[in-house]
Amino acid sequence: MSCVIDVKDLHFKYYNQEILNNINIKVEKGSFVSILGPNGSGKTTLLKNICNFLKPNNGTICIKDKEVFKYKNKELAKNVAVVHQNNDVNFDFSIYDIVLMGRLPYQKKFKSESKKDHEIVKKNMKKTEIWKFKDKSIHEISGGERQRVMIARALSQQPDILLLDEPISALDIKHQMSILSLCKDLVKDKDISIITTLHDINLAARFSDLIILLDSGEIKSFDIPKKVLTAENIESVYGVKVDLYLKDKNIPYIIPKAI
């Protein structure tokens, strides 16, 4: 197994305030990694460092053995796709046009989309089950469907790495499950690696291969769910006492008890 993301000694400051401190992460090809942690623990900042939207003060981030800032913009976009948290769309686009934007890194100026672009878009829209809405406006669909549109667009970039920032926070339980199942399938059959920030500890435990637990900008624990999600870890990071059960002897799930 090869290592697609390698973060070494990452430090990130925002106006002298330490946001990320001494982060070391290795992610192997084809794994599903969740980042957990309380609000303000640096989950989103970590994702934005990995996709080169923010520049670290110290340390290195390598994507497929090449430092992330050495990539040209378009080249990076062919390797790393991101679904950001803020997807308010004020402008009016059809869903098909939005997914088609995923082909931007492969296109030259003034050239229109190739047949191949359209084929890839269609394939990914079918995979994410949004093909039936293709001509609808982005304003006409629900939050869960919109998240699928953004994932379809990211997949059309044909990335090796997919970063998701709280993809299920605003969704109901059915859509939460369906988005995460979709991600799980992607990891299984495409050799794509997914890193996602999540708030729901139980869903993270159920779907992730590995979990990064962040506590005030530092990695408290980075391992398989069973080892990361212990009652002690959760109490020390979130300040919440929990009862912890094991489902199928392997997947932890928690019930909060008291603050």
């Binding site: 934005k48 996709c51 939207f53 913009n73 378009k74 080249e75 990076l76 976009a77 062919k78 790393v80 796709a81 991101v82 950001h84 803020n86 997807n87 308010d88 769309v89 004020n90 402008f91 686009f93 046009d97 939005i98 934007m101 995923g102 931007l104 890194p105 296109q107 100026k109 990211a154 970039q157």
Partner: peptide
């Protein structure tokens, strides 16, 4: 094309290269 990506948010545009 870049303007299309841009109006969906600067972060989105950047992640599209």
């Amino acid at each position: 094309k870049e303007m299309n990506a841009f109006v969906l948010g600067e972060e989105n545009a950047q992640s599209l290269g």
